[in-house]
Design a protein around this nucleic acid. Structure first.
Length: 977
RNA sequence: GCCGGAGUGGCGGAAUUGGCAGACGCGACGGAUUCAAAAUCCGUUGCCCGAAAGGGUGUGCGGGUUCGACUCCCGCCUCCGGCACCA
C-alpha cells in the first residue's frame, strides 16, 4: 500500500524536482498490517524511511570528512574527532552493548557537524587475535574466512543503525595495507632506545631516540657501560634506566668500561639490550591450553583473560617492549587527559610506582667470614631496617645457588622443585607462608647483627630485587612468616612515643629502639626517619633511595597464527636482523593448519609455513621470526590511521595528523571500561614512543575518554538462589513465576548470557520498532556511563514519542503536513527551552535528559500544533538522535539538503525565562502556599507578598515571625514560633 | 583487606550542586474511540490517614551542621567495579 508520500510530501512552493539529493520517496509499502490510519508512523514505515535515507546518505557520501588538501576541505572549520573503540568482529554479530557507545558518539558527531565542525567519525575492525582465532579453531574454519564473514555482518548491522561514519576511512587490522604500518612502527621501536637523560621541562625525564644516537654517545664516551651492561654517564653515580630489563644479581662493585674496550659481540649486546623493542630472556606467562605466552595484563588471577586457562611461569626468549621506561611519564601524563577517575586510578595502580630504598645486606661466607657479596633488597620502609631480623629471597633468585650451605642444599632444592611444579593459580590459592632456610647469613647493616637468609615463594622475583629484608614487627606477611618459622620479631616503630605496640604494626609512627653508634631514628616520625636512614645508607655506600614499579616490560610475542608477522629474520647463529622498510609488509602466509599446538613448550604455527620461512638477502639465507604480534598491536595506533586511511607513503600524513589530532588528540573516545589497562595503556605507550620519535604531535592520544556502561538484562532467581532462563518464567498478576513449577521467582539484574536466554539481538528490535526508536531507547535508558538493565517493555515509550512527533507534523489520514499558521506563545517558549537544553545536554553527554526535554516539548506542542518554522527547528534538534525520521520530515518541509548537515537552530536566551515564576512559601520548612510573581522580583518584594498571602496569614496566626529568608526566583521561608 | 563508584516510587531514572524531591518514560488504574480487541488519545498515580478539603510522612540506616539537606560533615549497612603475598 502506498503511503502517499509522493503525493503529499511537497508543501506549496517547494520544488518538486526529484533529482535533488535526498529527494524522492519510494512507494514501498509502509503499512504492513493495513490497519490504523494510512499515514501513521509504524515499524514498517520506519523501516522504509530508514533504509531509504541510509541509501541517500551513502550515495551522496553525506558523512565523508575531507582532509586538509582534499576537495571541499574548509580550513576555517574546527575539527572534531569522535572515536569508538572498534569491535572484534565476532561470529555472533553485534549485541545491544555495541550500539550504546556508538550511538552516543554518533549523536555528538551529528551535533558537531550541525555546529559547523569538520567531524572525523570512523569505524573499522580489530580483526587479528585470539577471539577471532579461537572461534575459527572451534569451528574448524580458517580465521580469515570467519573474520571476513563476521566483518560483513557487523558492517551491515552498523549501517542499519544509521551511524554517520565516514565509511571511506574504514580500516581492518588484518589488511596488509594496514599491518604494513603496524610492522613499520615496530621497526621504529626496534631502531630506538630510551634516553633517560633528556629533560622535559620539569616533568618526568626521558625520551626515545634513534638507536644511532646511543651508538654515537657510546663511541664518543658520553656513555660508559657498567658491569652488568647498564649505561653510566662518566662521573655520574648509578645506572641509567635501572628499571626493567636488567638481571638483578644484587652484586655491587666493578668498573665502567668504554665502548672502545668492548668486543664486537659485547657492543651488539649492549645496544640490543637497550632497544625499545628488544629480544629478552624473561620469565613469561605460558598458557599451555592456548599454546602461547601472554602479557601480564592478559593474565588475571593466574588464568588467561581469554578463556580462563591456567598460566605457568617459564623462562623464554621473546620480543619485549620497554614500556617500563615510560612508567613515570605514563603516570604523570594522566593529568593531561580528561578520563574517568576510575580508569586513571587503574592505570596508576597498574604502573604501581612506589618510592623506597635499595639496601645492600653484606653476606657471610659458609664458615662465617664476611664476603665481598651482598644481598640487595628493595623496601618502601627503610626506616624499619633496625627491625629486619631475617631475609627472604625469591626461590628463583640467582644468588640462592651460591649461598646455600651444603647442609641445606637438599631442602632448598626440594622446595624449589615443589614451587616450579605449581602453577600461578596454585601459588595464589595457598597463602600459607612456606619457605626454607638456605643456611646462609647476612649482616643487618644498621644493627650489625647476623641474620638468616631464607627462600620463600611469597617473595616474587619479578618485583624489586627479588629479595626482601623481613621486618616481622611491621609487616603482616613477614610477621606470619616469622610466626610460622619461629623467627624473632622486633618492634622499631610505635604509633606515638611511649605507645605499646602489638606487632605487626604496619602504620606510620615514630622510631623506637632504632639506633647505632652513627645514626638514630628514635622519636623521628616515619617520613623523617626514612630521609635520615637513606642519607646514612648513602654515605656508608650501603644503599640509596629508589623508585620501583609494578609495571613490567610488555611481552609482545605470541605463538599463534592469526596475527601480524614480525619484520625480523634470524641468521644461522639465531641472531635477529630487522628487515628493511622496503620489505614491508611481511604478509601472513596462508596456512591450512593454523591451529596452535597445545603443549608445554612453544611451537608457533608459522614454523610450519614451509617456503615462507626462508628468506634470501644478499645471497645469505635467513629464517623468519615465527611468532606473531598480539591482538593489541593493531589497536595501538588505529586511531591515527583513520586520519589518513589510504596513505601508502606514510602511516599517517603529517598534515592530517596535525589537523585531526590537534588540541590534545581524539576529542571523544568512547568504549568499554574493560580496556582500562590493556588497550588504553598500550596505545598511550606507542603514542608516546611515536611522539618522541617525531611522528605525532601530541603527548597523549585520547584527550577525553568516556566509558559506556554495561547493558544488563533481567534474570530470574529461585528462592534457593539458582537462576531460571528467561523463557521459563512468566508474569502473573505483577509477580514472576516459573512456568514449570508455578513457584514464584525474583526478578534480578544480571549480565546477558546465552544460558539465561536473556540476550537481546539488535536486529530483532530494529525489525519491531526501527533504528530511530532503538537509538532513542538506548540513550533514554539512563546515563551513558551507568550500567543499566535492558527492559524490552520500555522500548514502546520512545516509539510512541516518535509517533507523536510524526503526528505533530503529518496528518495521519491524508499524509499531508498539518501545521498552524501563527506560533503559540507557550509552544514557542517551550521550543527555545528544549533547544537550549538539548544542546547543553548533548555537550555533557546527558542524552537521557536531552530526550526527556524533547518529549516534554512534543507533549506541550501536541494540543496546540506547531508552525512550519517551529517544525523546521524541532526536526533539527531531534536529528542527531533520530536522524531518519528527521530527514523524512525535513524533506517534506521542502528542504533539498540533508537535515544531518543543516545548521543547529539558535535559541533566544530571553525566551528561556518565563515572565512570571511560581515561588513556594515555606513556613518552618514546609510548603504552605505558592505565589505567582514577576520573574525579576527581589527578596524584599517576595517577603512582602508572602506575608500578605491569605494562606500564609492564617498559618501564622498565633505565631511570631522570627526570620524570613527570601531567595529570588526560588522560595520564601518563614521561621515562626 | 585496600582503593574507587553507587544506594531516590512497583520499574528505568530526574533534580541548574544547599532552595518546592520524584522531571521524562514504563507499568498500573480510570475514561474516550472500537461490534470487540490491539493500537492510539485524555486523565490519575511516592506512601499512610481521609468521602473530600486537607493532614502526616518520605531520597539505605543512625547522628550532626543549617532558616532549609537526596545534596555538606561524622559513624554504620548493602551492592557494583578495580587491586591484592608488590616488600
Amino acid at each position: 500500500m502506498p503511503h502517499a508520500a509522493d503525493d503529499h510530501a511537497r508543501p506549496e512552493g517547494a520544488s518538486d524536482a526529484n533529482d535533488a539529493p535526498p529527494g524522492a520517496h519510494s512507494d514501498t509499502g509502509a503499512q504492513a498490517t493495513g490497519r490504523g490510519p494510512r499515514n501513521r508512523y509504524t515499524a514498517a514505515l520506519a523501516e522504509e524511511i530508514e533504509t531509504r535515507w541510509q541509501r541517500q546518505w551513502e550515495q551522496h557520501e553525506a558523512f565523508r570528512a575531507p582532509n586538509p588538501g582534499d576537495v571541499g576541505f574548509d580550513p576555517a572549520k574546527p575539527k572534531f574527532y569522535a572515536l569508538d573503540m572498534f569491535p572484534y568482529p565476532s561470529g555472533s554479530g553485534l549485541h545491544v552493548g555495541h550500539p550504546e557507545g556508538y550511538t552516543a558518539t554518533d549523536i555528538l558527531s551529528r551535533y558537531m557537524r550541525m555546529r559547523g565542525r569538520n567531524v572525523l567519525h570512523p569505524m573499522g575492525w580489530d580483526a587479528f587475535g585470539l577471539p577471532a582465532e579461537q572461534y575459527a579453531v572451534v569451528n574448524n574454519v580458517h580465521p580469515r574466512d570467519t573474520t571476513v564473514k563476521a566483518i560483513t555482518t557487523f558492517r551491515r548491522q552498523l549501517k542499519r543503525f544509521g551511524f554517520s561514519y565516514d565509511w571511506s576511512r574504514e580500516i581492518s587490522t588484518i589488511d596488509p595495507a594496514y599491518y604494513r604500518w603496524t610492522q613499520w612502527i615496530w621497526l621504529r621501536c626496534y631502531h630506538a632506545w630510551y634516553d633517560h637523560r633528556v629533560e622535559n621541562k620539569g616533568r618526568a625525564p626521558g625520551r626515545a631516540r634513534h638507536i644511532d644516537t646511543l651508538i654515537q654517545d657510546l663511541a664518543k664516551e658520553r656513555l660508559l657501560v657498567g658491569p652488568s651492561g647498564e649505561l653510566i654517564e662518566p662521573g655520574a653515580q648509578g645506572a641509567l634506566g635501572s628499571i626493567g630489563g636488567e638481571p638483578m644479581g644484587g652484586v655491587s662493585g666493578g668498573f665502567a668500561r668504554k665502548w672502545i674496550e668492548l668486543t664486537e659481540q659485547e657492543r651488539k649486546e649492549v645496544v640490543d639490550s637497550r632497544r625499545l623493542a628488544y629480544l629478552g630472556e624473561q620469565t613469561v606467562n605460558w598458557c599451555p591450553a592456548l599454546g602461547t605466552v601472554l602479557a601480564n595484563e592478559e593474565v588475571i588471577d593466574g588464568r588467561s583473560e581469554r578463556g580462563g586457562h591456567p598460566v605457568n611461569r617459564v623462562p623464554m626468549r621473546q620480543w619485549m617492549f620497554r614500556i617500563t621506561a615510560y612508567a613515570d611519564r605514563l603516570l604523570e601524563d594522566l593529568d593531561l587527559v580528561d578520563w574517568p577517575h576510575s580508569t586513571r586510578t587503574q592505570q596508576a595502580e597498574w604502573i604501581g610506582r612506589s618510592e623506597g630504598a635499595e639496601i645492600d645486606f653484606p653476606l657471610f661466607g659458609p664458615s662465617g667470614e664476611p664476603e665481598q657479596q651482598s644481598l640487595r633488597v628493595f623496601t618502601t620502609r627503610p626506616d624499619t631496617v633496625f627491625g629486619a631480623t631475617f631475609m627472604v629471597c625469591a626461590p628463583e633468585h640467582p644468588l640462592v645457588d651460591e649461598i646455600t650451605t651444603p647442609g641445606q642444599r637438599a631442602s632448598v632444592e626440594a622446595y624449589r622443585a615443589a614451587i616450579a611444579g605449581r602453577s600461578d593459580v596454585d601459588r595464589m590459592e595457598s597463602k600459607d607462608k612456606s619457605g626454607v632456610f638456605t643456611g646462609a647469613h647476612a649482616m643487618n647493616p644498621a644493627t650489625g647483627e647476623r641474620i638468616p637468609v631464607w627462600i620463600a615463594d611469597y617473595v616474587l622475583m619479578g618485583y624489586g630485587s627479588g629479595a626482601i629484608m623481613s621486618v616481622p614487627g611491621h609487616d603482616e606477611r613477614d610477621y606470619e612468616f616469622a610466626a610460622a618459622h619461629g623467627l624473632p620479631v622486633r618492634v622499631v616503630v610505635a604509633p606515638e612515643a611511649g605507645a605499646i605496640v602489638e606487632p605487626p604494626y604496619a602504620g606510620q609512627g615514630v622510631g623506637v629502639g632504632s639506633s647505632n653508634s652513627e645514626v638514630s631514628l628514635n622519636d623521628l616520625p616515619t617520613p623523617e626517619a626514612k630521609r635520615v636512614i637513606i642519607a646514612w645508607l648513602e654515605t656508608e655506600g650501603l644503599g640509596s633511595g629508589t623508585v620501583q614499579y609494578k609495571l613490567r616490560d610488555w611481552l609482545f610475542s605470541r605463538q599463534r597464527y592469526w596475527g601480524e608477522p614480525f619484520p625480523v629474520v634470524y641468521d644461522e647463529h639465531a641472531e635477529p636482523h630487522p628487515l628493511p622498510e622496503s620489505a614491508l609488509p611481511v604478509v601472513l602466509p596462508d596456512l591450512d593448519d593454523f591451529r596452535p599446538t597445545e603443549s608445554d613448550d612453544p611451537k608457533p604455527p608459522l614454523g610450519r609455513a614451509g617456503d615462507w620461512l626462508r628468506v634470501e638477502i644478499d645471497g645469505k639465507t635467513y629464517t623468519r621470526e615465527t611468532n606473531t604480534m598480539p591482538n593489541w598491536a593493531g589497536s595501538c595506533w588505529y586511531y591515527l590511521r583513520y586520519c589518513d586511511a589510504h596513505n601508502d607513503e606514510r602511516f599517517i600524513g603529517e598534515e592530517a595528523e596535525r589537523y585531526w589530532m590537534g588540541g590534545g588528540g581524539v576529542d571523544l573516545y568512547m568504549g568499554g571500561a574493560e580496556h582500562a589497562v590493556l588497550h588504553l595503556l598500550y596505545a598511550r605507550f606507542w603514542h608516546k614512543a611515536l611522539h618522541d620519535l617525531g611522528f605525532v604531535s601530541t603527548p597523549e592520544p585520547f584527550r577525553k575518554l568516556r566509558h559506556q556502561g554495561l547493558i544488563q538484562s533481567y534474570a530470574y532467581q529461585r528462592s534457593n538462589g539458582s537462576l531460571v532462563p528467561t523463557d521459563e518464567v512468566e508474569e502473573r498478576d505483577g509477580a514472576f513465576v516459573e512456568i514449570k513449577s508455578g513457584e514464584p521467582v525474583k526478578q534480578i539484574v544480571a549480565k546477558m548470557s546465552k544460558s539465561l536466554k536473556n540476550v537481546v539481538n539488535p536486529d530483532d528490535v530494529i525489525a519491531e520498532f526501527g533504528a530511530d526508536t532503538f537509538r532513542l531507547y538506548e540513550m533514554y535508558m539512563g546515563p551513558i556511563e551507568a550500567a543499566k538493565p535492558w527492559n524490552t517493555r520500555d522500548i514502546i515509550g520512545p516509539f510512541r514519542f516518535l509517533q507523536r512527533v510524526w503526528r505533530l507534523a503529518v496528518d495521519e489520514d491524508t499524509g499531508e503536513l498539518s501545521l498552524r499558521e501563527t506560533p503559540h506563545e507557550g509552544v514557542e517558549r517551550a521550543l527555545h527551552k528544549a533547544t537550549h537544553k538539548v544542546r547543553h545536554d548533548i555537550e555533557n553527554l546527558a542524552f537521557n535528559t536531552a530526550i526527556a526535554a524533547m518529549i516534554q516539548f512534543v507533549n506541550e506542542a501536541t494540543g496546540e500544533g506547531v508552525t512550519r518554522d517551529q517544525l523546521h527547528r524541532f526536526v533539527r534538534i531531534l536529528a542527531p538522535f533520530a536522524p531518519h525520521i528527521c530527514e523524512e520530515l525535513w524533506s517534506r518541509l521542502g528542504e533539498t539538503g540533508f537535515v544531518s548537515l543543516a545548521p543547529w537552530p539558535a535559541h533566544d536566551e530571553a525566551m528561556l525565562v518565563d515572565d512570571t515564576v511560581e515561588i513556594a512559601v515555606q513556613i518552618k520548612g514546609k510548603v504552605r502556599a505558592k505565589l505567582m510573581v514577576p520573574a525579576g522580583a527581589d527578596a524584599a518584594t517576595l517577603e512582602t507578598l508572602a506575608l500578605e498571602h491569605p494562606d500564609v496569614r492564617s498559618f501564622l496566626e498565633g505565631l511570631t515571625v522570627r526570620k524570613v529568608i527570601a531567595v529570588p526566583g526560588r522560595l520564601v521561608n518563614i521561621v515562626a514560633t
